[in-house]
Nucleic acid binder design. Structure first.
Length: 425
DNA sequence: TGGGGTTAT
DNA sequence: ATAACCC
């Protein structure tokens, strides 16, 4: 299929980036509609991680401390969002809904998805051409208000893309009650950048002629998705502060500083070029649960925390149906300097006899897992010396499908039956 | 600064 | 196992 596309005309992908508005806050407003017209923040520990637009109007910004938020906005209502279950479940409903339109859906975090709609666009373009119809109308905004040229097939493809993006957003609202933004462009980078240009619940299409305007509108290089904190700092040392600096910087020196791979990739990004494919995410590669706290300093406390984390995790794995073959323990040790970003981890294979028991009924898989995790803990920490942890995290990965021999069993069907629909009356 | 995720080395 | 990136 993709071969027929590129054979007919210059390769032009059409990518949609879908970005839900203040996602956690929206989920909470659906769970409790009384919060709908009030300023709402979602709290994790001492941080407001997201707020609705009522709260934003009153000055509550993302990742603000609860203290500052309450000062700015005393009427702010806070709900605890430390348990991600409702957000995770809603998030996958959105991805699955997009998957009904098209198989190429890639998740980015819980609230963003990329969709490669090239094939859908080609199909609609053919239908239009066969019906002799030359009238196509753009849906939503056009970046920089650029004029559309209907004789330019790239323009026409992107306009069709804007219509499909509108259908995505309408479906997400009709079926899940969620609003969001969308950006339509010829690659992932540009679709993501353009989706944020009109902000809540609107969409924007980028025409190729405006690509340089969009990428150069970024005031700092760290705004380029793919250039993170570390790379931005190193670029700063080289005197590279904005996108134009990066475009013009000698590639040879960049390659020496960052390595060929990173240098070439980010320099292409600075021109708005991004040939990375939309890679279908499929089911998750790992399941993890973590908790942060002020202090944990004894083996007994560590064991308690791990025992708190496991039931939720095992439940998620049970519902997923696959079996994990690796388990990992991650810790963060207190340090006054370098306060952030000192995590260590140890992982090991899960013994085969334990793996078998994952899918089964309430067999006690917890006790042996706690044992394994405590051994991993002792590989990192000498428990005879004082220690001070501020985070514990357990992660199951290396997920494998059940052996097919087991899949026809009665247990399998009981487990994966969806509950009866309707009231049952 | 939370509580998650991914890929590359 | 860590380091980088993303939200």
């Amino acid at each position: 299929h993709s071969k027929s596309v590129s054979a007919r005309s210059a390769a032009c992908r059409v990518i949609v980036h879908v970005d839900l508005d203040c996602f956690y806050a929206q989920v909470e407003m659906i769970r409790n509609p009384e919060l709908r017209d009030k300023p709402l923040g979602v709290q994790q520990k001492s941080i407001v991680v997201t707020s609705n637009y009522e709260a934003r109007k009153l000055g509550v910004k993302k990742l603000m401390s609860v203290k500052d938020a309450k000062e700015k906005c005393p009427q702010l209502i806070l709900v605890n969002g430390e348990d991600l279950t409702p957000y995770r479940e809603t998030s996958y409903k959105v991805t699955e809904l997009l998957g009904e339109f098209c198989p190429l859906v890639e998740r980015l975090g819980f609230d963003e998805n990329f969709v490669d709609i090239t094939e859908i666009v080609e199909k609609r373009l053919k239908q239009l051409q066969q019906s002799g119809c030359s009238r196509v109308c753009v849906s939503g905004h056009v970046y920089n208000n650029r004029a559309i040229n209907l004789h330019d097939t790239t323009h026409v493809r992107l306009v069709i893309g804007s219509q499909i993006a509108e259908e995505f957003r309408e479906a997400i609202y009709a079926r899940l009650g969620l609003t969001g933004c969308a950006g339509v462009a010829s690659n992932k980078l540009l679709s993501k950048l353009v989706s944020g240009t009109f902000k809540p619940n609107q969409q924007t299409v980028l025409l190729p002629e405006s690509c340089q305007d969009l990428i150069r509108s970024l005031d700092h290089i760290q705004k380029v998705p793919g250039i993170g904190y570390k790379t931005a700092k190193r670029l700063e040392t080289l005197g590279v502060r904005n996108v134009c600096d990066l475009q013009a910087f000698p590639s040879a020196i960049l390659e020496k500083e960052l390595g060929v791979s990173v240098a070439q990739r980010i320099q292409k990004l600075s021109y708005g070029e991004d040939d990375s494919p939309v890679t279908p995410s499929g089911p998750p590669q790992s399941f993890s649960d973590e908790d942060s706290f002020k202090k944990c300093s004894s083996e007994a406390e560590v064991k308690e925390k791990i025992e708190e984390l496991l039931p939720n995790l095992l439940d998620r794995i049970y519902k997923d149906g696959r079996q994990p073959h690796t388990v990992r323990l991650t810790i963060r040790q207190f340090s006054s300097t370098d306060k952030w970003f000192n995590r260590e981890s140890r992982q090991c294979p899960i013994p085969p006899h334990l793996i078998q028991k994952f899918g089964k009924e309430s067999s006690n898989v917890i006790a042996p897992l706690v044992d394994i995790l405590m051994k991993l803990f002792r590989k990192m920490i000498d428990v005879d010396l004082p220690f001070h942890l501020t985070l514990l995290s357990v992660c199951f990965s290396n997920l494998k499908d059940l052996p097919s021999s087991k899949k026809g069993s009665i247990g399998f069907y009981l487990k994966h039956m969806s509950p009866p629909s309707g009231s049952g009356k």
